[in-house]
Computed example of a mutant assay.
Amino acid sequence: MRGIYRLTSLAVGAVLVAGVLTACGDDGATIQADAQTGNRKIRIAAPFISTMNSAVLYAQGNGIFAKYNIETEFIEINGAGGLQATLGGSTDMAITSSVNPVAALEQGQEFPIVAQIGNGFPESVLVTADAWKQSGLTDASPLKDKMAFLAGKAWGVSSPQGSSSYMAKYMFQLAGLSDKDFKINSLGSATGTLAALKSKKVVAGSMGSPYPQVAEAEGYAKLFINVSGGEVPELTNTLTSVVAVTPQFYQNNKQLIADFKKALGEAQKLVYENSSVVDEWIYTNHFKGSPKEAVLAGVNDQREGGAIAKTPDVDPAAAERLVNFMKATGQPVPDDWRKIFVDITA
């Protein structure tokens, strides 16, 4: 995938698979303003560059955070590793799948959720160009027919514990099939899944926009189920991506978090109200070299499906749908899950 820019990378050894995440020496101290600039610097763990993160990326690159005396540094860390990084002191905040803080709470570790980034699943489903022809289906074919075609076929995802995997299992259930029909192939990243589609090692794959749209434009795959665009109503208005911090950081930096949310909210508003300008900037600064129309189609799908959050405050209904989704896919949810959602408990 040419032209897709990466964040600064940081290796994190421990991830949330089993056992409680453990702190490695960070006390969540108050972040002090720089004596010369007056800025407060926040290090943010984030997964790979995605159009789902348009608002936060635009806020960083266009002075919106700076207006609130905030300097941001994004560090690429996938999965629950972002939460581990906040505990270890490598980062101050984590943009992470919303299931991760809930799963951590089940294990006894709290990560207050201070803002929402995604309000719908960022991933959509691709199939190889050959599989699309063989299916005999159309874009308008019902979900049950599309899922029946995918039953038992090799399906690439980044991680067996990732949202793509649980999303696939849930869609099999919605189609009246067994989630055992999901033939998972864990490939480590969106790049790995795309490579497997291109080489036809898998028939299907799921990943966030604009990767599906770019793969389709390059001719080796077809967007099969446009989840991020709202094709599956049961997966819309579901909290999927959040900003989480440690309890210590939350207690010691409430004004900084409030200012961060104000800046994020301004950028989220622009994503919807000044979309052409924001989209052009996102493409030029993060995806230049990839097919432009495909990238813009990807972010537009996420916007039309409501996948990109419109405000930083967590929608209680979206949080409830997250919990229902987790329970439906066999993920443990503690009874006191609301305690980590500061917008709900405030």
Rank of each mutant, 00 (worst) to 15 (best):
Q107N: 15
I184M: 15
Q107M: 15
P101E: 07
T96I: 14
V99S: 15
G61I: 05
N69D: 06
F182M: 11
W155T: 15
K144N: 13
G120D: 09
G108N: 07
A115N: 01
Q161K: 14
A140I: 02
N69P: 02
K133C: 01
L137P: 00
I64E: 09
K133D: 11
K146A: 01
A80D: 08
I95A: 00
I70L: 09
S159I: 00
G118P: 08
F149Q: 00
P122Q: 03
A104M: 08
L57R: 07
L83Y: 06
D145E: 13
T128H: 05
K169P: 01
A104C: 03
G152V: 06
G188R: 00
A190S: 13
S189Y: 08
M167E: 11
W155F: 14
G63V: 03
V127T: 07
G120P: 11
L105G: 04
A85Q: 10
I70D: 01
G152Y: 07
D92K: 01
E110K: 11
G88A: 11
K67Y: 06
G89A: 07
F149C: 00
N62F: 04
A148V: 06
F111T: 07
G162M: 07
V127A: 04
A66P: 04
K67T: 07
L143G: 01
K67V: 02
V56K: 03
P122T: 09
S189V: 10
F182W: 08
S178N: 11
I113A: 03
F48E: 15
M147C: 00
D92H: 13
V127L: 10
P47H: 12
T86Y: 09
E73Y: 00
N69A: 10
Q109M: 13
G120N: 10
L83A: 08
L174A: 08
G63H: 05
A131E: 12
Q84Y: 05
P47Y: 12
K144E: 15
I117T: 02
G120Y: 09
E123S: 15
N62Q: 10
S141L: 03
S158C: 10
S135Y: 00
S50W: 00
F149G: 00
P142V: 02
T51W: 02
P122C: 04
L126T: 02
F48V: 15
I95E: 00
A80Q: 04
F121V: 15
L174G: 06
T72S: 10
I49Y: 09
I113L: 06
A140K: 11
S163I: 13
A104Q: 06
N119T: 13
E110P: 06
S159N: 14
K144D: 14
E73L: 02
S97R: 10
Y170E: 06
